[in-house]
């Protein structure tokens, strides 16, 4: 049946994405060799670009390149640089792993997540908090952006102020952010529950779920990454 309504994400099922993110993160955090890091980073960049998060992709690749350049050419020459270099290199796989987490959050809508996890027979007490966190994180980001804007207009955030009083700048952000998030969170929960979130009934989903070529492709890429790690 062809319905005029089409929503839910494009090319890969939410379950495939979830599995891919978990497998790649496990590879990164367990082996941690550079053999898997580079291809994992490149795959992440491609995935982010496909989600139209071009800036995110540029940031993570750029940061990685800077760290690599520093530890190759600069830090070994500086006294004490080796310690910094070791610390930096140690954090790299964690940052890439976090990048995959960002990709998942960015590419997944709450209804898709709920629908996908339901199909996987994941119990409700796991699904609902996850879906709420996914939605709430977006509101916190929105609140934080609005507050940062207000701080800019109020002259409370400038490069000079951030360097001279970093803690004070954070304090200006955190107090209104907490107040705003508590309010937003309460309102969000209230309206979602009124619309049946957490009801006893087993929910259905209108998100498009189902496997296709995209899923097979992502599966192959993850398999290839896994074989790099095994080298």
């Amino acid at each position: 049946m062809h319905s005029p309504v089409s929503h839910g994400q494009g090319w890969v099922d939410v379950r495939t994405r979830l599995l891919a993110v978990i497998v790649v993160d496990l590879l990164l955090l367990s082996s941690g060799t550079r053999f898997v890091q580079v291809p994992a980073l490149l795959v992440l960049a491609v995935l982010l670009v496909l989600e139209r998060a071009v800036r995110g992709a540029a940031w993570i690749v750029g940061a990685w390149a800077v760290v690599m350049a520093l530890s190759r050419w600069v830090l070994p020459q500086v006294p004490g640089g080796v310690v910094i270099m070791t610390a930096l290199l140690y954090t790299v796989p964690y940052v890439i792993a976090a990048g995959y987490g960002y990709y998942f959050v960015r590419s997944t809508t709450p209804s898709e997540l709920t629908g996908g996890l339901n199909r996987m027979r994941v119990p409700r007490f796991v699904i609902i908090p996850l879906a709420v966190m996914l939605r709430f994180s977006a509101t916190v980001r929105e609140d934080a952006a609005a507050i940062t804007d207000a701080m800019r207009l109020r002259g409370l955030v400038s490069p000079a102020a951030v360097i001279r009083h970093p803690l004070r700048t954070v304090e200006y952000l955190v107090v209104p952010l907490l107040a705003a998030s508590v309010r937003s969170g309460e309102d969000l929960a209230a309206s979602a529950m009124c619309r049946g979130l957490g009801a006893q009934v087993r929910p259905t989903t209108t998100a498009r779920l189902g496997f296709g070529y995209g899923d097979a492709l992502l599966g192959l890429v993850v398999l290839a990454l896994a074989s790099t790690a095994a080298i």
């Binding site: 319905s3 709450p110 709920t114 309206s191 619309r195 049946g196 259905t204």
Partner: peptide
């Protein structure tokens, strides 16, 4: 700003029906 749960309008409209267990095709 704080009364939608889903991130696209059509999922948001379907949200109540989904939670009530409505048939997806009919709901769409």
């Amino acid at each position: 700003r704080t009364q939608f749960f889903c991130t696209e309008p059509l999922s948001e409209m379907a949200f109540g029906g989904e939670n009530a267990g409505a048939d997806p095709a009919g709901l769409r």
